[in-house]
């Protein structure tokens, strides 16, 4: 089949970007979106042009590296599918696909379709864990966890941190990502001691990063490759409201976001 890929090309955060159209003949409907980009890149390299930079690693939908907008939808038209598992048969012969990077103030631009998602790491760093050092653990069966609780925690824990939720949200909100971790740990009995502090700190960091607010419209869940439910956002709000009250006397600090990649400058 034939396709036209219209791709955002920009060399770096300080250079000017533009859309470039690449007509593709002989697209095999069996190939994945990323393999289609591989083929394009191979031909660009052969012509001495610089290939399109895009993130990818596991190519089986679990590492969360890949992701870009395909004609206005994060990860493209197939629900619950990352671009690495999206096969070209979902597109029509002759179609034009517009490929754009995630757009968010909290995801500084890097190159072509690549953005910097370290904001997510900083949100986890701000409390997205249970503080248990190695060697401290009681027997695995010492704390019973009901099957339903465990299943709900797993639903939330399935998040791959790809950033599609932020990209799809008209407000650029990271509520689904942050809510997923707060819900995962807040549901489990092991996560109770730090529940208030975790919610308050993670919400504060999410704010610090410059993400927008949640308007509960569900675009995030709609594009989420792991179909994380909107319920996790309610869970975050609940834990935050209670936590903000109970932790009202404690000073909460956040980590300054950085977009620089020069590690030597610290």
């Amino acid at each position: 089949m034939k396709l036209t890929l219209t791709i955002w090309r920009q060399k770096g955060p300080d250079s000017k970007g533009k859309f470039v159209s690449y007509p593709m003949d002989n697209v095999n409907p069996e190939m994945s979106m990323l393999e289609c980009l591989d083929v394009l890149n191979e031909s660009l390299a052969e012509r001495g042009e610089e290939p399109v930079a895009f993130e990818h690693d596991c190519r089986e939908g679990i590492c969360g590296s890949c992701g870009f907008m395909i004609s206005g939808v994060a990860h493209g038209p197939q629900p619950a599918t990352t671009v690495c598992q999206l096969t070209m048969r979902h597109f029509k012969d002759g179609e034009e696909l517009v490929l754009e990077p995630w757009r968010s103030r909290a995801f500084p631009f890097v190159k072509d379709l690549v953005v910097d998602r370290r904001a997510f790491d900083r949100i986890i760093e701000s409390g997205g864990y249970i503080s248990v050092s190695t060697g401290n653990a009681p027997d695995g069966n010492a704390i019973p966890v009901g099957k339903e609780e465990s299943d709900r925690a797993m639903d939330a824990a399935a998040c791959i941190g790809c950033g599609a939720c932020v990209a799809a949200c008209p407000n650029g909100s990271a509520a689904l990502f942050t809510g997923a971790k707060i819900a995962h740990l807040g549901i489990l009995p092991q996560g109770q001691p730090e529940r208030d502090r975790r919610a308050v700190r993670m919400v504060a960091q999410m704010h610090e990063e410059g993400f927008g607010s949640c308007t509960n419209i569900g675009e995030c869940t709609g594009v989420c490759p792991k179909e994380i439910p909107l319920e996790v956002i309610a869970r975050m709000n609940r834990d935050y409201l209670g936590g903000a009250w109970r932790e009202r006397k404690n000073v909460v600090t956040t980590i300054a976001p950085v977009s620089d990649w020069d590690f030597a400058k610290k």
């Binding site: 955002w8 859309f19 907008m69 004609s71 206005g72 939808v73 517009v98 754009e100 757009r103 968010s104 103030r105 909290a106 631009f109 799809a168 008209p170 407000n171 650029g172 909100s173 410059g210 993400f211 927008g212 419209i217 569900g218 675009e219 869940t221 709609g222 594009v223």
Partner: peptide
């Protein structure tokens, strides 16, 4: 401010 650069194409899927 959360999205200083907008999309060329943006579709809604769930809302």
């Amino acid at each position: 401010e959360a999205r200083p650069v907008g999309y060329k194409v943006k579709k809604s899927v769930a809302s």
